[in-house]
Design a protein around this nucleic acid. Sequence first.
DNA 1: AACCATCACTTGAACTTTCAAGTTACGCCC
DNA 2: GGGCGTAACTTGAAAGTTCAAGTGATGGTT
Lengths: 179, 179
Amino acid sequence: MSTLPTSAAALDRPPQSAEAPRWLSDEEQRVWRAYLHATTLLEDHLDRQLQRDAGMPHIYYGLLVQLVEAPRRRLRMTELAKNMKITRSRLSHAVARLEKNGWVRREDCPSDKRGQFAVLTDEGNEVLRRTAPGHVAAVRHALFDRLTPEQQQSLGEIMQIVAEGLQPQDAGADLPWLR
Amino acid sequence: MSTLPTSAAALDRPPQSAEAPRWLSDEEQRVWRAYLHATTLLEDHLDRQLQRDAGMPHIYYGLLVQLVEAPRRRLRMTELAKNMKITRSRLSHAVARLEKNGWVRREDCPSDKRGQFAVLTDEGNEVLRRTAPGHVAAVRHALFDRLTPEQQQSLGEIMQIVAEGLQPQDAGADLPWLR
DNA sequence: AACCATCACTTGAACTTTCAAGTTACGCCC
DNA sequence: GGGCGTAACTTGAAAGTTCAAGTGATGGTT
C-alpha cells in the first residue's frame, strides 16, 4: 500500500514546477488513502481467512471458482488467466501447486496441441463445497453488510469504470490481451 | 483475485443447506467481481509503473512517502507498519531492502533500546522527488480522471467504512494493533 | 533484585509472484 | 513444403511475502 506526497512542500518543490504535476488535493488524498487501506486490509483479511479454512490464498480459491462455473469444469489456461487478470506465468505456477493438492488436473487440448485445460477434480469441488459458505460469510461481513444498497450500487459502477479503464489499453509486459 | 461460486447449483447444493449460507445475489456478484477486477488491475498497474520508473514496488514507495511526511523524516518501525497496515515482519524485510538501496537508514531509538527508527535519506528523498509526479499522474489517469466528483466522494466514504470495519476488531495473527 | 509477561523488532524457511528466457505448435506465405 | 512470425504454455532464478520462532528490552510484581 502507498500514497503520494501530501504536498509540494514536503518535497521542497515550488508549487508549480516545470511540468506542473497536479498533486492530489487534500480531499483526493483522503479518498486515495482510504482506498489503499481498505483494499489491503480486505485482501489480507480474505487471504488469511482462506488460508486458514481452505489451505490456499484468495487467488487460488478464485481459480477453483472459475473452474467450477465453467462448462465441463475445465478452462483453457489462457482463458483462465484472462478471467482472473493474471499472467500466464503466475497461472502456471498456481496450477502446478493446485495440481499437487489434487484439486486441479491438467488435460491436453485435442484440437490444439499447444493448449492445456485446467480441470477441477472432485476433490477440488469438495474443497469448494466445504469452504464456500465461510468465504461468502466473510465477504458479506467485511463488505456488503456494511454498505447501504445505494453504496453497493455505486461501488459496482465505480469499480466497473476503473476495471474497464485498465483493461483494454496499454497494459504491461506479459498481459498481451490487455493491449 | 477471486470470487465466489455463482450459485448453489454450481456446487450441487440445495438452495438452503443446513447452515443456509446466504449466497451472493447476481447483483452482489457483479459488484464483487468488479471490485476484484478493478483492485487487482489497479494494483498491478501501479506496481509496474513504479517498478519501471522508481525501481520499487508500490508498497515500498508508500513507505518512503510515509517517511517524507513524518516530522524528522523518521518513524518508529511499529508506527510505520501501523500506518501502512502491514506486519512488522514484512516491514523489516522491506526496510532491509530499502536500506540496501540507500533510500532509508536505520537509527536506534535513544529512549527505548528495543526501538528503531526508519529514516529517509537524501537519496530516498531524491527518488521521491523524481518519481512522484509520474506516480500522481498514473493514479489520476487510472482513477480520479474517470470518476465524477460524486463518485469520488462516494468511493471515499465506502472505503472509509470498509477500512474501519477491518481495522479495530479481530484481525489476524501478527497484527496486534488491529485487535 | 530476581521474575516474567509483554513489547519491539529480526530472522530464516517456505511459499508466491515476477521477469526473462525458453519450448513446442500453429498457420500462413511464398 | 520449408520458412517464419506468433501463440500457448512452462521454467528457473530473483524478488517479495508469510509464518513461526527467536533475541533483547522494558515495566511491573513480588
